[in-house]
Computed example of a mutant assay.
Amino acid sequence: MGWTTVWSHAQRGIAHHCASKGTVQLTLRQIVPAKKIRLVFKNEYGTQKQKIQNLSFKTNEKSEMIPDFTIDPGEIVKTASILIDPKAEKWQICFHVSTSESGFSYEDADIFTGAREMDFCSGLMAIEAEITGQCVVAFGDSLTEGATWTAPLQRSLRKQNIYLVNQGINGSCLLKSNSDISTKDSQNFFYGYSGVQRLKNCLNSHCNVEKVIIFIGINDLINGELTLESFQVEIEKMIQLCERYNVAYQLCTLTPCLGYLEMNEAKEVLRKEINTWLIRNFDDLWDFSTIVEGTQGCLKRTFDSGDHLHFNAIAGLAIARQISSDFVKGE
């Protein structure tokens, strides 16, 4: 038994999308019936010290207050172990944050909706539990962050003491750090760091990671910035990073999106070339494209959320069932 990351959400630079300070209140579904957990805070994109005050964690009638602390830019801070009620169906976290330059939106399959003082959750990055189990990281962009396939897979794998954590960021690119505004400042990287940097940060901050699912590159393709060679170079770097950390990896093919704004036939040809390279060269591969593709280059109509790129819940379930069966078979 040891410390394992059982829940996390990828941080991003929050740019102009959040108030500068405020109170964070989160209510999560019980992740695992553990007796001890600890909270992981990070100031991944911030350029100022971040002060965390009045931090509390409550399960049923059991509540603990954690002493105030500060987080330097780029620093990871883990709280001391917190005793919780393993029978509690909800976990409640509350704290005040002094500055907000790094965080995530509250949209998460495990977080109950509610009124918010801030648009983003700043500071908190992960929850670790003292359990027997392992962490699997789902690393990607909006096709991952949207949780259509990660949420049902999480529910399935948790029964096997495998804790899938969602590390998707909408708009995230493989090749470069990116934002919705012109910037070179990390706190404004609304779509996160480039793929290799993000993955390195993730492996440094998560505990007991067994495998990384790598599903990224579609934004670079749509933006017209991807080539087969650049995709190959960056994927090889990510594989080398996983091997350096002694973590298994699972690559995924790029899914079809003809009909989406700025996608065209030339880019579709490149998508096929990339997928052919992946299929020919890697055994540790999930062919998402085959699962969701209907008319050549397009999502199946029954799997399309409406924009011809993002999956709906039916598509997510189809993907999750395939991946879940592979985990069960030990593939």
Rank of each mutant, 00 (worst) to 15 (best):
A19I: 04
V40I: 13
K49L: 13
V40F: 02
R38F: 15
E44D: 05
S20Y: 04
K51V: 15
L28R: 08
V40K: 00
K36N: 05
L39A: 06
K36D: 01
Q30G: 03
I37Y: 03
K21W: 10
L39Q: 07
G22S: 13
K42V: 03
K49V: 06
K35H: 13
L39N: 07
V24I: 15
V32R: 12
N43E: 10
V24L: 10
T47P: 00
L39V: 09
I31W: 07
L26V: 12
S20K: 13
T47D: 07
L26T: 13
N43V: 05
A19H: 03
P33T: 03
S20R: 11
V40G: 06
G46Y: 01
K42F: 03
K21L: 05
G22H: 08
K35M: 04
V32N: 04
G46I: 03
A34R: 11
A19W: 01
G46K: 00
L28T: 10
Q30L: 04
K35R: 14
N43C: 05
P33K: 10
T23I: 13
V24F: 10
K51T: 15
F41G: 10
T47N: 05
G46L: 02
S20V: 12
Y45H: 01
E44K: 05
Q30V: 00
I37E: 09
V24Q: 03
